[in-house]
Simulated scan of single mutants.
Amino acid sequence: MKWPPTNCWTAPKTIEGNRHYQVKAYGGKNDKRWVDLFPTKNKKDIKRISWLTLKSKWTSGWLRLPKD
């Protein structure tokens, strides 16, 4: 997956009631790259995820999810 990251991501599981996230900021070099994400429902709740975790466990873009 190429750097910089795409703008929208779907979490592998629900995190505090959210699965769809957008990129706020990103940085770092090589294996120390990181991405700050916020859920679409709450722009103030920012999570920092390592680039390695994001590209291996998360899905780029927003998946259509079944209703819980």
Rank of each mutant, 00 (worst) to 15 (best):
K29W: 06
K2N: 14
W9L: 06
G28F: 07
T6V: 14
S56E: 14
K55D: 08
W3L: 05
P66W: 00
W51G: 02
H20F: 10
I49Y: 08
D68G: 10
I15L: 12
P39V: 05
Y26W: 15
M1D: 07
L63V: 07
K13R: 13
G17L: 07
L63T: 03
Q22E: 12
D68F: 07
R33W: 08
S56M: 09
K2Q: 13
K57W: 01
T6D: 10
V35H: 04
K57I: 01
C8H: 10
W3K: 01
K67N: 11
I15R: 11
W34C: 00
W62A: 02
T14C: 00
F38H: 15
K43V: 04
K44N: 15
K47W: 07
Q22C: 11
I15D: 03
G17C: 04
Y26N: 12
W58G: 05
A25R: 13
A11T: 03
A25M: 07
T40S: 03
K55I: 15
D31P: 07
R33Q: 14
K67S: 11
D45N: 14
K41C: 02
W51Q: 07
W62E: 09
K44M: 13
W62S: 09
V35I: 15
G61A: 06
K24Y: 05
A25H: 05
S60L: 05
K24Q: 08
K47S: 08
L65T: 11
N7I: 09
Q22V: 10
W3V: 09
T59N: 13
H20Y: 04
P12R: 09
K32F: 04
L37P: 04
W3I: 07
H20N: 12
Y26A: 02
P39D: 10
D68E: 14
I49H: 12
S60H: 06
I49C: 04
D68M: 01
C8F: 10
D36Q: 14
M1E: 11
E16T: 11
K67A: 11
K43L: 11
W51V: 11
H20P: 00
P39S: 13
V23Y: 04
S60K: 13
M1S: 13
Y21H: 14
P66V: 14
S60G: 03
K43R: 13
L65E: 06
G28P: 08
I46W: 07
T40M: 14
L54H: 04
P12T: 05
S50M: 04
W62K: 01
P39Q: 10
L54F: 09
G27S: 12
P66M: 04
K24M: 09
P39T: 07
W51S: 15
T6M: 02
R33F: 03
M1L: 12
Y26I: 01
T59W: 08
R48N: 13
G17P: 01
V35L: 08
G61H: 02
Q22A: 12
I49P: 10
K44F: 06
L65C: 08
W9Q: 00
I46H: 08
A11L: 09
Q22N: 13
